[in-house]
Design a protein around this nucleic acid. Sequence first.
DNA 1: TATTTATTGAGATTGAATCTCAATTTCAAC
DNA 2: GTTGAAATTGAGATTCAATCTCAATAAATA
Lengths: 146, 146
Amino acid sequence: MRPEERIFRNCLASRGLRYTPERNIILQEAFNRHDHFEAEDLLYSIRKKEKRTSRATVYRTLELLVQCGLLQVVDFGGNSHHYEHVLGHQHHDHLICERCGRIIEFTHRQLEKLKEKVCQEMDFDGRSHTLKIFGICDQCRGNTKR
Amino acid sequence: MRPEERIFRNCLASRGLRYTPERNIILQEAFNRHDHFEAEDLLYSIRKKEKRTSRATVYRTLELLVQCGLLQVVDFGGNSHHYEHVLGHQHHDHLICERCGRIIEFTHRQLEKLKEKVCQEMDFDGRSHTLKIFGICDQCRGNTKR
DNA sequence: TATTTATTGAGATTGAATCTCAATTTCAAC
DNA sequence: GTTGAAATTGAGATTCAATCTCAATAAATA
Ligand SMILES: [Mn+2]
Ligand SMILES: [Mn+2]
Ligand SMILES: [Zn+2]
Ligand SMILES: [Zn+2]
């Protein structure tokens, strides 16, 4: 059994909820993807495969997947939420190209330290963070520096 | 003349646009505030003072104020945009208390350096960034550490 | 004054997200 | 395998911020 399925089953069971066919379809579709995606996209993909699932169930299930720690909402400033995998991905932040919209992931160990320092100085109990850097990606600059 | 008014007038003039009474009211109201605010709040405040202004004009004018560099959109993850002053405020980032919703501003000079480093390593021309740290504020922890 | 151009506002529209509730499914107990 | 309680689903209604439409109005210009 795929690890995400086991986790989802366990999480649901521990809350007295059921692993239904609809939830299975949505889980599969969410983990077939390997980029950031939107709820409406997911719904569209599922319907294209003639698997009928309601919009309400998609939204409800994505919320459950977030609660179970399998997915995460990530906000790129548009008018809709985006989701990404948590399972199998370490924490990372994002570069966002303002010209082509490309999203590039990165991690930087110093950022974690800096976060600790800021929290200490501000007497804040920081639990999580998001850093987004907006600019122009290398492709859009035609691979010329600056 | 208040500096924000001069800037707004100049910016509008340079684009062949007019400084109207409605735009004046909205500018004033936006700069009376000294925290993060939403378009609907602003509209409500204006109407409470019996100054009739349409929702469309408020949204349109806020957009102009952003384009003129007087305001900035800042996203706290809710379902609506928030605005904050740019004029008279240096760049800063935000701590967001997940219990009481309080927004705390901070600046940290190392963050700018780190951003430069990340951009260099990733071959990305970074123009701006936002860092949000989510957690629990000192007040919500009852002023006890951790 | 006449003409052009920008602006406004009431209301319609969009679109993501949520809600409602009757019908259906699931599961455990008998 | 029948029964009943509890969870789940889906079609469609609803919400809400934000945007759009377009006729009426105001301001600038000739
Ligand atoms: Mn990501
Ligand atoms: Mn701020
Ligand atoms: Zn790009
Ligand atoms: Zn707090």
